[in-house]
């Protein structure tokens, strides 16, 4: 039987790219002290530790996990609410098709980009240093993080609206407030709410670990038990957090599907 041979183009640029990427990956792996043997043994030993966490979790510890978990959800609710509240007017100002003042929108976009590049954990560690440990610092970090996320998504939505409605209102002599109220808000409100819910989902996940740097919620309890190497309790915390996050994701994405 004859074999089908597909002639391949040997092009220099493609080969050079592959070589470069390979060098980057190998270089990175060596730099980070990473090896395949190390990974495999790490995964195997990780499996054993996971066994200690999940095969015999200390279920009697569960009642003491409830309060911090509730605090985590509360932190996410408040953080999302504050972030979304500030994000809306800022998104309107940052959109280039409505206000049309580059002097406002350009610097705003620049600042928003900076906010979005700072991870929530870094914000939380800064706030813990300034305001002390506790949920308040966590809420502030979540609010700023959500603000960056939602305002970017929202100003992109505003720029993508059907502009005919705006023009129709303007031709009737409506002022900018009326245009905003009757042409822009109705068009983007479902998307904005959907982004807010998405931000809430992200925040619940983030809030669950913020406590590790002292910013309140379940992460603080997690950190204490981990430092005492109480892996059976850590297992309980992880399992309960996992199901809370999953339940919130489920409800929130069900609402989001109905919104948009």
């Amino acid at each position: 039987m004859e074999q089908i041979v597909v002639p391949k183009k040997h092009n220099l640029r493609r080969n050079l790219t592959i070589l470069l990427v390979a060098a980057l990956i190998i270089g990175s792996a060596r730099f980070a002290g990473f090896s395949i043997v190390g990974t495999l043994s790490g995964i195997l030993r990780g499996g054993r530790l996971l066994g200690r966490m999940f095969l015999s979790p200390a279920w009697s510890y569960a009642p003491r996990v409830v309060d911090p978990l509730v605090e985590t959800i509360r932190m996410s609710v408040v953080g999302t609410f504050i972030g979304a509240l500030v994000a809306f007017p800022v998104a309107v100002l940052a959109a280039e098709n409505f206000i049309r003042k580059p002097l406002i929108s350009r610097p705003l976009r620049f600042i928003l980009n900076i906010f979005r590049t700072i991870p929530a954990m870094v914000l939380a560690s800064l706030f813990v240093a300034v305001f002390g440990t506790g949920a308040f610092s966590g809420v502030l970090a979540l609010a700023i993080f959500t603000f960056g996320l939602i305002s970017k998504l929202t100003f992109e939505s505003i720029e993508a609206i059907d502009y005919g409605q705006v023009e129709a209102l303007m031709s009737l002599g409506a002022n900018q407030i009326n245009v905003l109220r009757y042409a822009i808000v109705p068009q983007i409100l479902p998307q904005f709410l959907s982004y807010t819910l998405y931000g809430f989902e992200v925040n619940v996940r983030a809030a669950a670990v913020l406590g590790y740097v002292g910013a309140g919620g379940i992460g603080q309890v997690f950190e204490q038990n981990l430092s005492f190497r109480r892996f059976d309790r850590v297992g309980v915390i992880i399992i309960l957090t996992f199901f809370v996050v999953l339940a919130i994701d489920f409800v929130s994405s069900a609402i989001r599907r109905r919104l948009v």
Binding site: V70, E71, I73, R74, M75, S76, V77, V78, F81, G132, G134, A135, F136, V139
Partner: peptide
């Protein structure tokens, strides 16, 4: 409900 639970020291 969320605001009520955030301890503001």
């Amino acid at each position: 409900w969320g605001f009520a639970g955030i301890e503001y020291k």
